[in-house]
Design a protein around this nucleic acid. Structure first.
Lengths: 108, 108
DNA sequence: TTGACATGCAAGTAGTTACTTGCATATAAT
DNA sequence: ATTATATGCAAGTAACTACTTGCATGTCAA
């Protein structure tokens, strides 16, 4: 499975995005900490985190019996480079263009 | 289903991302055109396009019996604003920070 | 060393997703 | 008018996903 697949798949789930948000609010939390305030079993959270790790969005460090989770923002930059910047045009111009083409009654 | 859900879900599939790429290469293609060079039945493509439309990433215009498809880059910009810029730090600093925290043997 | 805590591993299940096939409808061309 | 083209609609299926439960393992603390 390609990097991009893993990345987009990881981001596709709202629960996983919420985990990212929680880590963004407070980086380095343990699994148990992340489970609190989250309406899901620990095992559910574990599995979501595994996908985030597979996508390289989260890195872990062990401290004794605790697993600390850290956000890695780099892959998000890659999404930006490959998927956003590429499609980027001055926002207003893009909308104008789109609107014009949608409203054309003739052909291109 | 929230806008973000629709967006990320739409982008989660490689086939749909490929469709986006094809539209980026040549905007305004018909369904049949998009089907060519794509290893899938027309109906498969139709269903993918429906999700892209639901996410507002693709807009359509009818010309007679043909359905023309146009890329709308605006939602991608929203992903950037809410999901990338938010997590953005100077790239090198981010990596340095992450590495340091992962390698710490003490606690935070 | 015993008990509590943090996590891992494995199997099962309900719901979802991607994809196909077959038929129907509308527009265009001859 | 008839035929070909472009697309829509509906139902079926195989694979996948999110989630749970139960038990196992490793670490810390009294």
């Amino acid at each position: 499975m390609s990097d991009a697949d893993l990345l987009f798949k990881a981001l596709a789930d709202p629960g996983r995005r919420k985990l990212m948000d929680r880590l963004h609010a407070h980086d380095g939390q343990t699994l148990s900490e992340l489970c609190q305030h989250l309406d899901m079993t620990r095992q559910g959270v574990t599995q979501h985190l595994a996908l985030l790790e597979a996508a390289n969005l989260v890195a872990v460090r062990w401290r004794g019996r605790e697993k600390l989770h850290f956000l890695n923002p780099v892959p998000l930059q890659e999404i930006y480079d490959r998927w956003i910047r590429k499609f980027e045009r001055p926002r207003l111009k893009a909308l104008r263009d789109l609107k014009r083409r949608l409203e054309e009654d003739g052909e291109d």
